[in-house]
Amino acid sequence: MLEIANLEVVYNEVILVLRGLSIEVPDGQIVALLGANGAGKTTTLRAISGLLDVHEGAVTKGSISWNGEAIAGKKPSEIVRSGITQVMEGRRVFAEMTVDENLTTGGFTIKDKAATAASYDRVMELFPQLGERRSQTAGYLSGGEQQMLAIGRAMMASPKLLVLDEPSLGLAPMLIEQIRDIIVDINKSGTSVLLIEQNAMMALSIADYGYIMETGKIVMDGEPAKLLADDDVKEFYLGLHSGDDTEKKSFRDVKHYKRRKKWSS
């Protein structure tokens, strides 16, 4: 189980981005972390995987514990070895290398050849499309295929927890559905999932639990059904409006403001 408690992250020693964030990812579950642009979702993920250093960021308060062990400040390679891998925002496949070589990088921490072969077979099973393009240069794959490759690459390490940063970004609805089904599939075979999304509908349709964050902290959490029923979530994240006549608009704007205040206080 991953437990983040009262996490504070600062960039460049002055820019406070996470302000006491707390979330939990119990074993075997899919947990969704939703939030608008700039809320600090990617920063949360960097803190989990030890990549804050690269961005001149640091954890200044709070804790991240993974199966009871504190992991904040550990090296990315140690964190991957301990069973957490991530699919980075924007896919970040190694465009110059082949599909197979990309997958090899994902299995870098696994020394056992048989285990590597087993995860490779599993990835090919999850993504038959990749199998047809093994020796193709990753840069020439379509956006959807690149996202599959990014997930496949992360799965090569046989993670116990898979963290995905906006896997639906820039994909057509059909592909989003396919990615969603694959995440469910991965979860069914025992991998916990922390799903970071702006596409709340997609994330909440498969999550066991959801968090909504704004400006660096959680403003609401609960089961998907509860979150989906909430008026604020409907408006801000699902783009559903209770009424569309212009007369009401100003009133609703006031309400927006009030709700925002309620959330961020």
Binding site: V54, I79, V80, V93, F94, T105, G106, T109, A157
Partner: peptide, 11 residues
Amino acid sequence: FDQEAAMAQGI
């Protein structure tokens, strides 16, 4: 090619 992405793979 991409130092951060490589680190994220545990390299």
